[in-house]
Simulated assay, not measured.
Amino acid sequence: MTVIRTVASTRSTNEDMLGLAAQGEPEGVWLRAVEQTAGRGRQGRAWLSAPGNLFTSTIIRLRPGDPTAATLGFVAAIALAEVVSLWTGRAPLTVKWPNDVMIDGAKLSGILLERSGDAVILGIGVNLVTAVDISDRAIASLAPYGAPDAALFLEELAAAFARWLGRWRGEGLGPIRARWLEWAHPKGTALVANLPDGESVPGLFDGLDGDGALILRLADGTSRVIHAADIFLI
């Protein structure tokens, strides 16, 4: 059962949900903040919060036999892309590994997974109204397409996520991987992967392996499998 709660202001919806998960909060609860004062993204980055944008988190309770928890990012990206397309149409949208939803190559959203015991906290931020500036990448918002109300957008998103979570849990990663690839930029797209150790690996997008890792085709014709990196379109 999906339940959506809204608070006027909080530091971080993910932070709040981690606390609620420790108290036994069940799967299916979403928390939306009208204002978020200390949001965070991947690798400890700050997620800047502008009025009217979406700041939300939910809990997934892992069960025996579930696919790898990290692949929930693909589930979230698919659900988010499908909902965004209700406003934009399909043409301008792509997903970039692992879970960025892009409009005409500019980043629209952020997705953060954090785990505590059997609970995975999924945090999602979407630029509905304002494209908050980030120095190293192009940023988009839904404003040019008629920015939706955050509460309405979240209702659609929660329903889409529940559908895809059911497939992830019932059918495994295969259908999720296939759907993600349908949304992805074409094979052969030039990318650079900035690895956690500081190495930069340029290559061409060559799909995903069976576990969802990124495959880059290198200049010498070999392939490299990337498990963790910041990915930039060239």
Rank of each mutant, 00 (worst) to 15 (best):
L191H: 05
A162C: 10
G207N: 06
L181Q: 14
G188Q: 12
W183Q: 03
E171V: 05
L173N: 05
G188I: 09
R167V: 08
L208A: 03
A162V: 06
F161D: 00
R169H: 05
D206G: 08
E182A: 15
D206M: 09
A184R: 07
T189K: 08
A162G: 04
A193D: 08
W168R: 07
P175Q: 08
G207H: 05
L195G: 11
L181F: 09
D197A: 13
S200R: 15
R179C: 02
F161H: 01
A160E: 03
G188F: 07
A160Q: 04
K187H: 14
R169S: 12
P186W: 06
R179I: 01
H185S: 11
D197V: 14
L195E: 15
P196L: 03
S200E: 15
S200K: 13
L204S: 13
R169Y: 03
P196M: 08
A160D: 02
A160S: 13
H185I: 12
G166H: 10
G198F: 15
L181M: 14
L195W: 13
A159P: 01
A159T: 06
D206V: 07
V201E: 07
R169W: 04
E171P: 03
W164G: 02
A162W: 01
P186D: 12
L181E: 15
A162P: 01
L173Y: 09
A162T: 07
L181W: 06
R179W: 00
D197Q: 12
A158N: 03
W180N: 01
W180F: 14
W164D: 01
L165R: 10
W180E: 03
L208R: 02
D206K: 02
T189M: 11
W168L: 07
N194L: 15
R169F: 04
I176Q: 01
A193Y: 09
P186E: 12
L191R: 03
P196F: 09
G172T: 11
A158G: 10
A193R: 07
A190Q: 15
G166W: 04
L173S: 05
H185W: 10
L208N: 00
N194P: 00
R177H: 14
A184K: 07
T189I: 07
R167D: 01
A184P: 00
L208S: 02
G174W: 11
I176M: 03
G170E: 10
E171R: 14
G198T: 13
